[in-house]
Structures are given as C-alpha cells and as structure tokens.
Design a protein around this nucleic acid. Structure first.
Length: 158
DNA sequence: GCCAACGTTGGC
DNA sequence: GCCAACGTTGGC
C-alpha cells in the first residue's frame, strides 16, 4: 500500500452508470456529478489524486462491489448544479456561490467475481464497514485500509 | 413496488 | 430551535 493513500467507496446504479460505462468512457475517466448530500460531498473534498475507490453497484441484482477506480482530479464545482435542464439542478447555487462538488475518477479494474452485499456481510472483519451499517445510505464513504485489504483478498484482486 | 431509515425544509 | 411533513435512498 502506498503511504498516505486513502480508500473510499462510491455507489452508482448500474442502469444509470455502471463500471462498464466507466471502462468505456473517454480516457476511462468520468466526473462524479450529481452528489447532493453534504456528508458525501465533504468526503469528496477530502479525496486526493491517487486515492483508491471501490465501485459499488446499488439498486442492482445483486448489489455488489464490482471493481476499482482511482481519483484523478480533486474536488471542483459540479456544473450540473447550475444547469436548469439537469435533473441535479439546484436553484440555490450560482457559479460564484457553488454548493456541490465532484471529483474525477478513472477506471482501474473490474473484479472477475463481484462481491455481493450478502457476501460482504458474511465477513466478520468487515463488520464495521460504513456500507454494512444499518440504514447507511451514503453514496460516497470512507473505507479503512484494513477493510480495503480484506475486500481485495475476497475478490482475489490486487 | 414497498417501506425503513435518513436528510432537508419550513412553519411556528 | 423544534419537529412534522416531505423527499430520497436503496435493500428487499
């Protein structure tokens, strides 16, 4: 593990944007727009280039961690907050007073076998994961280094 | 499609 | 500053 690097998990509905979509994106990179939760936004503001991200498919069958991405650009204003045509438009925001940020992430790998939520729950070492906490809905969340290592091992990935 | 859990809004 | 009403998330 690289010193100082941090670990995260980001949720996406695969019918909206899947890890396959990320892998097919230009430069295999996307901006993570649409986050409208302060806690999730604040976590994105803590992200540094090189931080590693578990890509999670929510509202999926089954919901699962499906691969890894990497932060390639730190937080900057999410343009969709100013866009009246956008589903994520926020009338309280102006370019001089933005409220919502996004980061850019780049595709790294898709696990050969994705790790379902059920499978993760079976692992005692992952008991404390934010993802597994009752009622947890955070779409951007921290992962500890220990949790990262356990999940990687379960996925048979590096 | 249901609904529990959670966050936000706005009246008071 | 409380809290009811409402909206959203996301597993099931």
């Amino acid at each position: 593990m690289v010193q100082g690097r941090r670990y995260w998990l980001m949720k996406s509905e695969p019918r909206v944007f899947s890890i396959e979509d990320l892998a097919r994106s230009s430069k295999q990179t996307t901006c993570w727009d649409g986050v409208r939760n302060y806690q999730a936004r604040n976590f994105m503001r803590e992200m540094a280039v090189g931080d590693q991200v578990f890509f999670y498919h929510s509202n999926a069958e089954p919901p699962a961690v499906v691969g890894i991405a990497e932060v390639v650009r730190t937080a900057y204003p999410d343009q969709t907050q100013f866009d009246k045509a956008s589903h994520h438009y926020d009338p309280a925001c102006t370019p001089s007073a933005p409220r919502w940020d996004m980061v850019d992430i780049r595709y790294r790998q898709t696990f050969k076998a994705s790790l379902s939520l059920d499978r993760l729950r079976e692992e005692p070492k992952l008991k404390g994961m934010v993802l597994l906490r009752k009622g947890s809905r955070l779409s951007v969340q921290p992962v500890t280094e220990a949790e990262w290592a356990v999940v990687l091992k379960l996925a048979g990935a590096k």
